[in-house]
Nucleic acid binder design. Structure first.
Lengths: 350, 350
DNA sequence: GCCCGCTGTGTAATCGATTACATAGACTTT
DNA sequence: AAAGTCTATGTAATCGATTACACAGCGGGC
């Protein structure tokens, strides 16, 4: 009866095209396309025949063809400094959830400290491989030079998460890192600590800059003077924390409290101190930032700053989707942080 | 002199097409395309003119057009049960690295327990949105029914990571969960423990089945009998571990060792026990599985099974790339695990 | 009975790159 | 000098869906 239907037979038939559906349903390709995109503009009978034909041949529209014509990819690029940090996983999850519901897919761009990668992700945007981008990395992608000194030009809508990107005129979802950091510093000072150390994040990280400023604000507000020798470098990794711990142990005069710019370093350093016989918080108080899951289950539980990470992801994705849909949205959203006091901090014992 | 070059002026010019480059370089589009794909087939002069023109107009090839024509997307789908688990982040990183080097992008499919998502990811493959897929979820995607009782048919090459997928005829990168689990159980028994509890993972998880089998193998090998009441349900989350900890505390007769099928639960439960005054390992020994970063820095450090996660990701991606390139590869790779003894386990005190 | 408008459908141009095929010209070979 | 080979290039078909435009057919208003 019918010619083409190689439905069940071979496993290796090429995918069905809109043509095949049209032929089987005895309509034009335009009608098939409309039946899917604007069902109300097609007669019920035609629509039924089309749907039946689609089911029969297992038709799935070809995204490349669709994208080529419509210039829409339904894909979003998420740029982040590294996948290897639990801090991002919950944010990613919030993003994924929200994008999925809107029918968007998520492409991951893990920068991993490589400028080469950055160039490629920028060209992803320039090439129209994605409809939009979420930046978790604290600086603009696509500002990289293209070899002739010009920044990549891209019209791809972007939203910055986690931190304001200086000089960038794009919507930003931020938490007030600086204020939270100040609050933590003041809290430690209020416990009587005078020698409050600080463990830094990567030097090129915007979050770090804000948090560091907050630390200095806090010292000042508490009437303490800034002491360069109480500042340790770090890179947000557990290992960096361990290294700082060892460095602190080697000091003659130790700080009485250590504020680490993220939880992982705080945990690493706390562990090192405790292993060496230092009591936390009796001898040294420790505090972190982020409130990752593990912060609550280390011993002693870590005092830290809670960030609404999942909400951050959801909000960022929502704002980007609004942008893509042409619905303008507040260009700047600020989410609340919360000081979480746990067992790792206590009164200073002079 | 030249007509079109709106290079510097407006920010909102549409992206340059291959046509524009061709016109500017005074060659055909075929030559431009060849200059990029097969430089050796183009005269040096033409090539130079093309490159100059490309730089001048900031040309980036349109991926949709390219994909439509070549049927290659240079994208890989990575399907995983949840982003919200540190266990996967290092694997993802290994994957990303390897794919990036080969010029492939990575699309994340976070299943998150939703069958709806699974259907969409399957249709991603059916539609040719990706060239291949890496499955970290322990079962086939695309076996979902399409509503008419037929599994999605897809020719997309897939590689299973983490665990063998029963009945699936695809390359698999596995670690020997069962043997490792047995070894851990025997190790605990060798310390004199007779009541060795086990905390399970999600019921539908293939890894869990293997690990559970290994636990029973280990009991048997040690001459211990399996006791249903020493098995607790779990879902690989910290919270589940906390719940199990509370449940153990409520028991009159407690196990002397607890083997948790992943580290996060082990850490959650250890913390709960310690908070309640139980000494680890003096009163109860605790062991985990995976060797996540935090395992080494909790107090006491966690005895566990080390898995080469990054290598797992790299290997999986490499095998998939081989498949995509038509280079056949060993259909099954087995990676080594390692028993890591730390402070959380010790001799039984009867 | 004529014209208008509305609905449903088809025809064909279009999106941008790749590549099979054709061809022009230079260079060899006999 | 004729024929053959090789290189560099251009022409145009092609991938598969979307959609502007055209038009057929029908019903209603006058």
């Amino acid at each position: 009866m019918d010619d083409g239907g190689p439905a069940e037979g071979k496993a290796l038939t090429r995918a069905a095209r809109i043509q095949d559906v049209a032929r089987l349903a005895e309509v034009s390709t335009a009608t098939v396309s409309r039946a899917l995109a604007h069902p109300e503009r097609v007669s019920p009978e035609a629509r039924a025949r089309v749907m039946e034909a689609i089911a029969q041949v297992g038709y799935v529209p070809n995204p490349a063809a669709r994208t080529l014509r419509s210039q829409k990819t339904r894909m979003v690029l998420v740029v982040l400094p590294t996948l290897d940090n639990v801090f991002f996983s919950k944010i990613l999850r919030g993003i994924e959830e929200t994008l999925f519901e809107a029918g968007y897919g998520m492409i991951i761009g893990d920068l991993d400290g490589s400028p080469e990668k950055e160039v490629r992700f920028a060209s992803f945007m320039a090439a129209g491989q994605v409809d939009g981008a979420l930046l978790l990395n604290g600086h603009l992608v696509g500002q990289s030079r293209d070899g002739r000194g010009q920044p990549f030009k891209t019209n791809v809508p972007m939203v910055a998460l986690c931190e304001a990107i200086p000089g960038a005129d794009i919507p930003q979802i931020v938490v007030d890192n600086r204020a939270a950091s100040q609050r933590m510093t003041e809290y430690l000072a209020s416990l009587g600590h005078r020698r409050i150390a600080y463990v830094r994040g990567p030097a090129d990280n915007v979050l770090e800059h804000e948090r560091f400023k907050g630390y200095r604000d806090g010292l000042q507000a508490a009437g303490l003077s800034f002491d360069e020798t109480l500042v340790w470098p770090g890179d947000y990794s557990l290992d960096a924390g361990v290294a700082v711990g060892e460095s602190i142990l080697a000091r003659e005069v130790r700080p009485s409290a250590v504020f680490s710019s993220n939880d992982e370093m705080a945990i690493g350093l706390m562990r090192t101190l405790i292993s060496a016989g230092v009591r936390v918080p009796e001898d040294i108080s420790v505090a972190g930032f982020d409130d990752i899951e593990f912060a609550a289950v280390v011993e002693p539980p870590l005092t830290t700053v809670h960030q609404p990470r999942r909400e951050l992801g959801q909000t960022g994705a929502t704002v980007l989707l609004d942008l893509l849909a042409g619905r303008a949205k507040a260009p700047r959203v600020r989410l609340k942080t919360e000081l979480v006091v746990r067992g790792s901090s206590g009164p200073a014992h002079p």
